[in-house]
């Protein structure tokens, strides 16, 4: 299938496309410049893949958790493009995409994914590779580093910038079960696309309007009655 994938859940601006079996992608650190960069990057990746916008059959997007603004850029671009072309969308969790991106090097395919959620917290999930897919060992959640779920067994690889921001506190919590850390690993559109391809094939694509972020942090302000 001709598919497009975008991920702006972290500092990166990341776009990938597939034409048949072939995958094409760009992945750049963009910081605050994701909005300025994303459509130009989509244009470049489609050109490289030899696909016209009108030939895209589905769009996958990094759904979160991650930077609130980044998640809305990916969701907004996905909505706009999908509405214009009348095609379906599939959201892929950022922590799963992080595991997929980093997982090829992980010992025994066991990944603890942690993204820095700021305000002293991390977005956390744990996955174990099973054949071509991933089994969810610990569902995505928002935790203080000293309260993340402890994985059973050993040989887990800790991935994501949560391990840079809270290295010692996570090490104290997770102890011996983590054998290696990869704090530089980040979700990518390529990983989002790889995870979405079998789901598109299975007919799981949804309407464009369903492309909304998964924030996990839902308490963002105090009501008057709570002050």
């Amino acid at each position: 299938m001709n598919l497009l994938a975008i991920d702006t859940s972290t500092d990166f601006c990341s776009v990938a496309a597939s034409r048949g079996e072939a995958l094409f992608s760009r992945h750049e650190r963009a910081g605050q410049r994701q909005a300025e960069t994303i459509l130009g990057m989509v244009d470049e990746v489609l050109a490289e893949a030899g696909i016209e916008v009108a030939q895209i059959q589905g769009i996958a997007y990094g759904a979160g958790p991650g930077s609130f603004t980044g998640l809305r850029i990916a969701a907004g671009v996905t909505q706009g493009l999908a509405l214009a072309r009348g095609i379906g969308v599939i959201g892929v969790g950022s922590l799963l995409a992080l595991s997929e991106e980093a997982g090829k090097d992980a010992a025994d395919g066991r990944v603890i994914a942690c993204l820095d959620a700021h305000r002293g917290e991390v977005y956390h999930a744990a996955y174990r590779r099973t054949g071509a897919g991933w089994e969810e060992v610990s569902a995505p959640g928002l935790y203080r580093p000293e309260a993340v779920p402890v994985a059973s067994g050993g040989d887990w690889t800790g991935c994501g910038d949560g391990f840079a921001a809270y290295r010692e506190r996570l090490a104290a919590r997770l102890g011996e079960c983590v054998s290696a850390i990869r704090p530089e690993a980040a979700p990518s559109a390529r990983a989002v696309l790889r995870l979405a391809i079998p789901r598109f094939a299975a007919g799981e694509a949804k309407d464009a309007a369903t492309a909304v972020p998964v924030y996990l942090r839902d308490k963002v302000a105090l009501k008057t009655s709570e002050r």
Partner: peptide, 20 residues
Amino acid sequence: LAGALLVGAAVANSFAFGLG
């Protein structure tokens, strides 16, 4: 509001991009 403006800008520009 920056975040609110970005939602409209993202959808508007990508919708236009998709329609050419």
